[in-house]
């Protein structure tokens, strides 16, 4: 066996693994994707919160600020905090380091999210779900959080890059949730605004 065989083998495996995400790509985009909602579904004031504590979830607060939406970004909000709000917006993205940063476990985070959703249902509040990291964050824990939130959701906003993963879209389709997918994060402003105005 030649000495270079290990190096060549290693490089080939590397290229194959790198190219593997393209293997199952569905280019037809057969799911429903609305540019905007036909009518607003939420009312101000809004509780913006994070499910999974991914650091990038903070961008939801920035978008809300840009849109002058009345509400608060409270990443660790509890079910009891909902009394003062008329819409719940959850940005989903689980991050092990984000959870560690907030000193909590994934189970605790999942329980908090479920309690929030139950409380929102009890109060009849509309629930909007956002997923802003696209295909970059489709790990097991994030998908679990999406599974937990999908049955309560009234609207789902995400990036088009998740098109390669039909699992999230199937979840939303199964829960009969309207889905809007945008190309860039900047494009989230329009559909989020249309959910309220």
């Amino acid at each position: 066996m030649k000495k270079s065989s290990a190096v060549i083998g290693c490089l080939v495996i590397g290229f194959l693994l790198a190219a593997s995400p393209f293997g199952g790509q569905d280019t037809t985009n057969s799911f429903n994707s609305y540019p905007n909602l036909p009518a607003p579904i939420g009312e101000e004031s809004i509780l913006f919160t994070s499910a999974g504590q991914a650091p990038e979830n903070l961008l939801l607060a920035k978008i809300a600020e840009d849109l002058h939406l009345e509400g608060d970004y409270r990443p660790r909000a509890l079910a009891s905090d909902l009394y003062d709000y008329r819409t719940l917006v959850i940005i989903v993205g689980s991050s092990p380091y984000g959870l560690q940063y907030r000193n909590r476990t994934f189970t605790e985070e999942m329980d908090r999210t479920k309690q929030l959703l139950n409380e929102a249902e009890l109060r009849g509040l509309p629930v909007i779900i956002l997923h802003v990291a696209g295909a970059k964050r489709e790990d097991k824990q994030t998908v679990e959080l999406l599974k937990a939130t999908a049955p309560y959701a009234d609207y789902f906003l995400g990036l088009k890059s998740i098109g390669s993963s039909t699992e999230i879209i199937e979840l939303m389709d199964a829960a009969n949730v309207p889905v809007t997918l945008v190309k860039d994060l900047e494009d989230l402003h329009t559909p989020l605004n249309s959910a309220f105005r």
Binding site: L17, A18, A19, S20, P21, F22, A54, P55, E56, L59, K62, S95, P96, Y97, G98, V132, A133, G134, A135, K136, R137, S161, S164, D184, L185, E186
Partner: peptide, 24 residues
């Protein structure tokens, strides 16, 4: 290179998402 499996770890995803938001 995200679609080529580069930078799939937790912090890299957050950093790239933030970069996408701030500087596209």
């Amino acid at each position: 290179l995200s679609q080529w499996s580069f930078g799939a770890d937790d912090l890299a995803v957050s950093l790239k998402t933030a970069d996408s938001f701030i500087t596209e």
